[in-house]
Design a protein around this nucleic acid. Sequence first.
DNA 1: TGTCGACCTGCCATA
DNA 2: CTGTACAGGTCGACC
Length: 305
Amino acid sequence: MPEPSHRLRWAPIPATSLNIELSLTSGQVFRWTRNAGGAWLGAVGDIGAYIVPAERGFWWATYPPDRWNVVEAFFSLQVDVESLYREWVRSDRRFAELIDLFRGLRILRQPPESALCSFICSSCNNVPRISGMVGSLARLVARQLAVPWFEELRADPTLVDLARVQERALRDAGFGYRARYLAQLGRLACSGLTPDIEGLERFGWSEARAALMALPGVGAKVADCVGLFAYGRHDVVPVDTHVRRYVVARFRPDLATRSLTPRVYDALAAEFRGIMGPYAGWAQQYAYMAARSGVAIASLQGGTG
DNA sequence: TGTCGACCTGCCATA
DNA sequence: CTGTACAGGTCGACC
């Protein structure tokens, strides 16, 4: 594969501030790939991106060229993680361990419509399979980008793109019961029956969240993922099975046996947000990774130390 | 409000 | 190698 070496730009953002591999493989985005040379390839909306990590920074290229603002926004580089780390350790001393493990992990800012599609696919699912589905979805419905240094790169899909495929084709491609949600969403979008997903970002979160939850296949968890990963709502805490396990073990053992009703969901999110503060959504990603990777939750039990 | 089962499929760990 | 439990949930029907 030809590499855009003559176009590469340098960004002096150290790996301690942005761990590219960790951020791209932490279950936020599912379509980035790494080539043999260690470069990461992916799309951000309609923009192709090429990222080569290094210790003291990273090399980057986009197509169309030189879209630094896209790279900067995607990696949320305006957020100073070092100051977050200092705050988190003050809020919860045991976060020091998670920061050591996952230093440089950032919340990525994705186009909301494709984030919606991805997290509809994520329900009751595992990351390898989600990646396969999200890749298939892009191949089935999204526009091919004419990026010279990719053999094949699809744009991030939009909701109207979804109407290009029948539910049956999605089922044949292995989407299972999520096929119905996606096909239905595409029909609604083409009929003008979905809200302006991009525009919802400017609404209050409770209003935007309710609008998202009215869409097929979108419950509290998926809506919260759109809030955190697409709208830049840093304080929104999606409560999945891992985060639930973490918060229950760490702070709310009284909720251990309760089923995850909307009330319990909100209580867990509120508990975590109350402790971790306005960037609780970012902190959630660290807790998620810890719980998912089997870092001894037991060792995290008992008080807020 | 809270509980239950259905919805699809494949990964992963253990028999 | 065949069998389970489970995986970044949501929805509708009943208490």
